[in-house]
Design a binder for these strands. Structure first.
Lengths: 221, 221
DNA sequence: CGCCAATCCTGACAAATGTCCGGATCAGTC
DNA sequence: GACTGATCCGGACATTTGTCAGGATTGGCG
């Protein structure tokens, strides 16, 4: 069952989040969760507004109403905040990935891509932007974890494309296409300032029609 | 002559670089040019390695062998360095932009895109990465300048697509496609770590076949 | 050699930043 | 009300950062 192997692998890679420090100062778990949410929400906004490096702990404290000293009872350091934010927004489990959608053969390629983009752009907008912008600030081990997940996703995607379209499995163009489709995920978030007056659904429809045609053209050419 | 107007507009927008400070301490112009090149080269490497905010003036001085005090005889401040680097790498004049290539009707859409990507990926790799990563660090006026250039390019591109393909000029999908094709420029630089074993020319060929098909699919659909 | 303008650099300053000590405050229990 | 353990926070620390004044050095010229 190559398809199942695929999603198994993906699920495995998925559960590997960036490692969050555990801190044993405060003991009330629900308090910890609340404060961490405050902190991460504020940090997300600020990272998107000013970038990771330009955001200071003091900024985050001010916006989240957590004291500068107390914040270290909930997070280990600035990088730990970034890790938690990415785990929440980029590695979120509630978004179907494209290989998963492609498992259902009753959904056309075009619709699958549209559904993928729609979900991504609606709920992972911030995560995508952060992931692309903050890569330089990640520690090497985190970057590695990110790369492993990405590679697993890519492998599953080429497998599904291969299964559906019957290209030679080793055809490098499958990898290129997989990469490209995943890259399109970033199109909406990264360029929305340019076409702010065009309805999102129009963009999604246009891109997914185009992307499906792109895949077919490469397969048939 | 709408086509000519297009390139005129582009050329006009092009000549508007980010404004570089002029400093009147050192007088020997060729010395100034040399030092600035040292500084910008070192800064480029460092910005790509560690990001703009995480790169310190001291880092730049160390790598460029310019003294920490002297550097202010050649550049006004850290942001001025970023502006100069972007002017050199992102706004470089020696790369044909896509609308320009599309003026020649003997070149197919596919070949035009391939040529555009090939040039971009060969000589503008660093510029593209920097532009996408450093936007948050630009001052508002610089961001505005960047947006104006981008908008001019996009307008020219939809004009050319319109001329070639005969869609309604107001069709929003033209804008989406233009945006998308320009966005593809970033594909190579941003994802080359993933498929480092695939020859660039294969990637370019695959992407340009696909992109041309994408455009046609949208136009015909 | 001695002079002068141009260039370089030692050393410093103020501000900002990540981090956290140690005491203040609060909530629950007897 | 007194005690105790958990949480909060005022204020400080060592560093790092951008910036630059003012003296040291250099190179050409008379």
């Amino acid at each position: 069952m190559p398809a199942n192997n695929g999603t198994d692998r993906l699920r495995a890679a998925r559960s590997e989040l960036l490692e969050e420090a555990d801190i044993r100062v405060v003991q009330n778990q629900s308090l910890i969760d609340d404060r961490r949410k405050q902190i991460c929400d504020a940090a997300t906004e600020l990272f998107l507004e000013k970038g990771f490096a330009a955001t200071t702990i003091r900024d985050i404290c001010a916006r989240s109403n957590v004291n500068q000293a107390s914040i270290y009872d909930y997070i280990a350091n600035k990088n730990d905040i970034l890790r938690r934010v990415l785990n929440q927004l980029w590695f979120r489990e509630d978004v179907q990935m494209l290989p998963e959608i492609l498992l259902d053969d009753s959904v056309s390629l075009e619709d699958a891509i549209a559904s993928f983009l729609r979900q991504s752009w609606q709920v992972k907008r911030k995560g995508t932007l952060l992931a692309y912008r903050c890569i330089p600030h990640l520690l090497p081990e985190d970057r590695k974890a990110l790369r492993i997940r990405e590679a697993a996703l890519m492998k599953d995607l080429s497998d599904q494309l291969h299964r559906r379209l019957g290209l030679q499995a080793e055809d490098q163009r499958l990898d290129i296409l997989s990469n490209l489709v995943v890259f399109l995920q970033a199109f909406g978030p990264m360029r929305d300032w340019l076409h702010s007056d065009i309805p999102t659904e129009t963009v999604i429809r246009t891109i997914s029609v185009g992307a499906a045609a792109m895949v077919m053209a490469v397969v048939e050419g």
